[in-house]
Design a protein around this nucleic acid. Structure first.
Lengths: 188, 188
DNA sequence: AAGAATACAGAACACTTTGTTTTGTATAAA
DNA sequence: TTTATACAAAACAAAGTGTTCTGTATTCTT
């Protein structure tokens, strides 16, 4: 990829991220992004067809890595002990969130949080299907598997939201305990 | 209130609701609402300062009644037997949703569902505080009360969303069973 | 290092949407 | 009937959108 492209792409992401942290997505004009990124009008449209595509690209950039690492190597990345169960995936995710650059946390805490939480949830569902459903862990309950997948993904995302909106006072371990406290009784 | 005001106000709500059912909120121009409602440009702005205020007014109109009736007379409205516990509030809500004019269901199922589900959730929290927290029903758990309120409200809203997105195949009783199946184990 | 390729800036363009103002008319309330 | 006011219609500046053009600067290639 051309160095010039990387540079302007990064400038656009940076400007967009900063704007998202301070104001509503709907109220951000393409013109503002252009001004903040200090690029030409033509250049923006050469990179992103619309503002929505830019948003999508940002989501993929932010969440892609976190979800991928959780999918690929869910265990063994951390040194503390954790049982080799699907449950630890959630602790893994929380730790990654806490350690991630502050962009993702800032956006998840901003007034645009719903946009990113939605994207987070849709990716999380795929993860749960891999880690739970495909391993037959959701068959024990009397509730429909489809319902359970949605419930688990929603609960986790909402837990993360609750954690963030209260300035992450608790440790990832505590939050995992809270979260598992709400879903483990259902699965047994 | 002036008959003319009522009439145009209703025309605006009708046009807005129909537009919301078919396209994204962000992509609806005030001009479209004006055209669909067949009113003058000045008239719209005389009634609603912005599109956002119109949305807020619509939310209050749609959810205000449902939540109020659930708060005021949570039991005794239906003839079938139901235990006089706080749990029946959820069945009450689902039945009201099912019976409500198709506007609210159409909007909750539209691509704008998040806007309305968010509003629904915030109102639901107040209801849960009244029906659960203030009655001391959330003290038995080892989880923080604040966390539980958010969890219960989120879970119910997500359950409703799951129900709607699958065309309401199940009865309100079945959905209540599913939902209570996820939260009752936590409270005992 | 030289050439070809291309990413970019800057300006101009037609177009849409926004929110306000003005003037006159029709409808409601007193 | 009289008074009040909700409304329509038109015009307005301002801002934003997405595209097209031309020339310049940077980069990749060989």
């Amino acid at each position: 990829m051309d160095r010039r492209q990387k540079k302007t792409r990064e400038a656009i992401f940076k400007a967009f991220t900063e704007l998202l942290a301070e104001k509503n997505y709907n109220q951000i004009a393409v013109q503002e992004i252009i001004d903040a990124a200090d690029i030409g009008r033509t250049t923006f449209y050469a990179h992103f067809e619309t503002k929505d595509y830019l948003l999508k690209a940002l989501c993929e950039k932010l969440f892609g890595h976190i979800i991928d690492t959780a999918m690929g190597s869910p265990h063994g990345h951390y040194h503390y002990s954790c049982k080799y169960s699907a449950d630890s995936v959630f602790l893994h995710l929380l730790k990654h969130l806490q350690e991630s650059d502050r962009n993702i946390l800032e956006l998840l805490s901003s007034q645009n949080n719903e946009i990113f939480l939605r994207y987070f949830k849709s990716n999380l569902k795929k993860l749960i299907i891999t880690q739970y459903a495909d391993k037959g862990l959701l068959n024990k309950s009397s509730l429909p598997e489809d319902f359970l997948i949605n419930h688990i993904a929603s609960s986790f995302v909402e837990t993360v939201y609750w954690w963030l909106s209260r300035k992450m006072k608790e440790t990832p371990e505590e939050i995992t305990e809270y979260f598992l406290g709400t879903i483990e009784p259902i699965l047994n």
